[in-house]
Design a protein around this nucleic acid. Sequence first.
RNA 1: GGCGGCAUAGCCAAGCGGUAAGGCACGGGUCUGCAACACCCUUACCACCGGUUCGAUUCCGGUUGCCGCCUCCA
Length: 466
Amino acid sequence: MSIQIYNTLTRKKEPFIPMEEGKVKMYVCGPTVYNYIHIGNARPVIVFDTVRRYLEYRGYDVTYVSNFTDVDDKIIRTANELGEEVGELTSRFIHAYFEDVGALGCEKADIHPRVTEHITDIIAFIQVLVDKGFAYESHGDVYYRTRKFDGYGKLSHQSIDELKVGARIEESAIKENALDFALWKAAKEGEIAWDSPWGLGRPGWHIECSVMAREHLGDTIDIHAGGQDLTFPHHENEIAQSEAMTGKEFARYWMHNGYINIDNEKMSKSLGNFILVNDIRQQIDPQVLRFFMLSVHYRHPVNFSQDLVESSKNALERIRTAYNNLKYRLETSADLGDQQDIWMHKVNELIGDFETAMDDDFNTANAMAAIFELVKLANVYLLEENTQVNILSYFIETFDRLMGVLGLPFQSEGELLDEEVEALIEERLTARRERNFARADEIREKLKEQGILLEDTAQGTRWKRG
RNA sequence: GGCGGCAUAGCCAAGCGGUAAGGCACGGGUCUGCAACACCCUUACCACCGGUUCGAUUCCGGUUGCCGCCUCCA
């Protein structure tokens, strides 16, 4: 069974068959860098990072491109307000972006192109559209002639006429049609600008993705992804631009993630109800945040609240505990060499469940259910008096692989305790042996205040940070 | 007005024709010197009304409620 992907273009799940066997070309729309990203911005980054990881797990060679919009109205406005150069502002927030999504366990794209590095390509692209009659110059701007492109509306499944009815855009004297959109914007006094055949100006928003996707991945790409709200107009416009330019299909699979809501309302910069990743990751383990986001199917909305994050924290803790218990048990287990057995067979079944879930349009919620079944299985195995190294190792290896796909690797607990703490643990052991439980509890309480939790197991006393 | 989504236990969330996965929380039990971890047990008339079907949470029609896109937006 191949991977099934829900394609916005066809509104159906389709078997995923890349153009070139074993290779995937993937483009994900990135942020406009004039502020720290909020957790809503982080969702597509996490979701599609996970998609990428799973494709790689499945053996695909993925080329992943994600852009930065580093020039646009909001950037210019913010730079003016802060009295900062556009370039300074954007590099500051690009840096912050990498820190934020890095903390959330997202790998860097293979290529992170920036608009300002592609101005020449953008101008050349627009020129072709003008030459082909798909674009026209007006008052120093250049607009896309939406009427001319037959497929306009095919992604958002709207006809031009329907769109016009709903459009809150004023009919403009500058544009031929209200739905025409800017490819190139004439510069206003003092704005950052580049020279072009149409005078000083800068690119419109939509053109950059068409150009950069083509530049780095070619005329046709396998997967184009982004937030649901980009479907229209952004992605619709990209299709119009790219397909008019090349005469070829632009993207074969369109994937869109749902929003993050706060109190059942969309979180957005314009509504002002956003939570910055930069703030929240100081308070909440970023892995918990990632776990939380992946606990819901990517196309569904997810409501954010402290309570839900708290329950995610406990859930993740259960997985980590099982993993650590397996590792701990390694030291006191028999090494009988490699041998197959019933436990490993059950683990394999759960790996199969995990893959079935992920194959089904990256159903991370179900994939996690498989992981929890694995947790249960591991815990039951740990109930056995005599555990074996090769079975424990297989559990551990499986946890590492599957959690790796979700971008939730286990952090090593390699840190050492200071001597004082070690001494206290020793003292407590002695106290317990002498059945001086008052002293033992006192020590445990004391260490707890320092964030060190002690657990007495059949294999000895162990500690963990809590 | 056009297009679309959602409504499943206290909470979160899968499932989408054969009487409901998983997680969190709660309660009961086992284990433990006590804990912690863990294990076992318990917990659902699948928004409402019709229809199709031997059979519907799952398909169709309608109702209600919530949300989104059609404007910058992940």
